[in-house]
Design a binder for these strands. Structure first.
Length: 472
RNA sequence: UCCCCGGUAGCUCAAUGGUAGAGCACCCGGCUGUUAACCGGGUUGUUGUAGGUUCGAGUCCUACCCGGGGAGCCA
């Protein structure tokens, strides 16, 4: 492969003058050496930091995002992972070989550009680079992703390349902020991160379909659908804990809200009541959204996400009981019998009537998991809460106060026909110093999807795993 | 598991049952400030697969394959 380098040197007055120009063969593999003796070195600067380097000569290393030319001037848009900057190559400003060589630079060619950073009102970044050296690392083969629209099937097949595009780039940066906001929030609140195993001997909740794997001589094991039961054990050791990791659901769900593998964060705290759980969820969502708005304004702009609804995510969130929610649904003309769970359309309609997340608590126990504590003042309902995100997004959090009474929990295990042996360790938590406790689970991709205003959760995870898609 | 929609060039899509097309990508040429640049020319096809109806099927029928989003289930 060819490397082209056109080098400059500063004269005593500080002006930049051409010194040498070279075309040399690079090693066919590995990164190209930048210490060409003819080359005046320049400090490597990330694109995002370029505005602070206006007036100085720098080096950027990245990929050719797009190229436009106008006969006697080339515009090279270079992205380096931190941002995109335009390098300008004018025909009169550089040797003819370098100028002509720019014609051959295909989209996504990897390269190192050197030149002087200069302010320009026309540049989206505020600065551009007057390139005097373009070193090619590899001329890219014809790039599968075009500049025009693509369908979801094609983009998902090309997900490994699609990640380079502007929108996925912005989404993953928001995701990163959300993850750090989550960890920082729990750290500040005194929660210890204690992770749960992925291999489990049985279903945590007994309802969902799980992925099974052969586990040596111990027979069938399953990929976890939730770390909650383990978090409960850890909470009895550390008081306040959370786990944060991938979980797996083998349901044959094909919707914009479902993945077969997704990330869930599950705080659990000893001596927490349902009200404590709701207050925690409220503070938590407020902090996560605020942090994202603080760090990722630019990314939200790229995603054309209106920040105003996010700015309204401030405590207190409305809290309504299941009974009140049923009333609301009925008065809106929806048909629902007491005791039925809400369907997705009903949940969406409910959340759409609030301008911030809404907490729906005390669902009928019959539609909820076996480990949830019944309300002492109404045995028909569970001490649980679902948090529905606004703008029609729907459920992002499910939580509850847990059943802390051994006999009640044993009865629930039998009612749900769960294998008691597999739950003995869990029942032990009620034998040795049982306390009221509770927690919730938050789906990371649904949250990121809501914050980014995405159509589908598959865009909120780097490599989505869905029913009919496991590659790349 | 059920319901609905779709499959035509590398990509996004068009084509009353009657000669398969456009834009983008790619190749050639032009243009000194482009912002998915633009202008001119060119290359690109087992219309998902297998049958069937018809003088004639991308188009109608049947089965299958693949994909999509909705129900259920859930975060």
């Amino acid at each position: 492969m060819l490397a082209i380098a056109f080098c400059v040197k500063r004269n005593p007055a500080g002006m930049i003058v051409p010194r040498a120009y070279s075309i040399g063969l690079c090693a066919p593999e590995g990164p190209v050496s930048c210490d060409n003796p003819d080359m005046e070195p320049a400090p490597r600067v990330p694109v995002s930091a370029l505005p602070a380097h206006a007036g100085s000569r720098v080096e950027i290393a990245g990929w050719l995002y797009n190229r436009r030319s106008s006969g006697k001037i080339h515009f090279l848009q270079v992205r380096d992972g931190t941002g995109v900057v335009q390098a300008v190559v004018g025909k009169g400003d550089v040797p003819p070989d370098l100028f002509e060589r720019c014609e051959t630079l295909a989209q996504e060619t990897s390269l190192i550009v050197r030149g002087v950073v200069r302010a320009d009102a026309r540049a989206p970044l505020g600065v551009e680079i007057g390139a005097d050296s373009v070193e090619v690392v590899q001329i890219a083969e014809p790039y599968p992703l075009g500049k025009k629209e693509h369908g979801p099937d094609f983009l998902l097949t090309q997900r490994h390349l699609w990640l380079r595009s502007r929108k996925p780039w912005a989404v993953l940066r928001v995701r990163d902020s959300v993850i750090r906001a989550i960890r920082d929030f729990f750290h500040k609140e005194g929660f210890l991160c204690v992770d749960a195993p992925v291999f489990t001997p049985a279903a945590c909740e007994g309802t969902t379909t799980l992925f099974g794997v052969d586990y040596f001589d111990l027979g069938k094991a399953y990929l976890t659908q939730s770390g909650q039961l383990y978090s409960e054990a850890a909470a009895m050791a550390h008081g306040k804990v959370y786990c944060f990791g991938p979980v797996f659901r083998a349901e044959r769900s094909k919707t914009r809200r479902h993945l077969t593998e997704f990330w869930m964060v599950e705080p659990e705290a000893a001596f927490y009541t349902l009200n404590d759980v709701m207050s925690l969820a409220e503070r938590f969502l407020e902090a996560v959204v605020a942090r994202t708005l603080e760090e990722r304004r630019e990314e939200l702009k790229i995603l054309e996400r209106d920040p105003v609804p996010l700015e309204r995510v401030r405590a207190p969130f409305p809290r309504i009981s299941y009974d009140e929610a049923v009333e609301k649904i009925r008065s809106a003309g929806g048909a629902i019998e007491w005791g039925e769970d809400f369907g997705s359309p009903q949940e969406t309609a409910l959340s759409a009537s609030y301008d911030r997340p809404v907490m729906v608590h005390r669902y009928p126990a019959q539609v909820k998991a076996f480990y949830m504590k019944r309300d002492p003042s109404d045995a028909r309902v569970a001490l649980c809460v679902d948090v529905l995100a606004p703008e029609g997004v729907g459920e992002i959090i499910g939580g509850s106060q847990r059943e802390d009474d051994l006999e009640a929990l044993l009865g629930r295990v039998r009612e749900h026909k769960l294998p008691q042996e597999a739950f003995e360790w869990y029942l032990d938590l009620r034998r040795y110093g049982s306390v009221p406790h509770g927690g919730f689970g938050l789906g990371l991709e649904r949250t990121v999807g809501w914050i980014c205003g995405l159509e589908h959760v598959r865009e909120a995870i780097p490599f989505p795993r869905m029913m009919y898609r496991i590659v790349p």
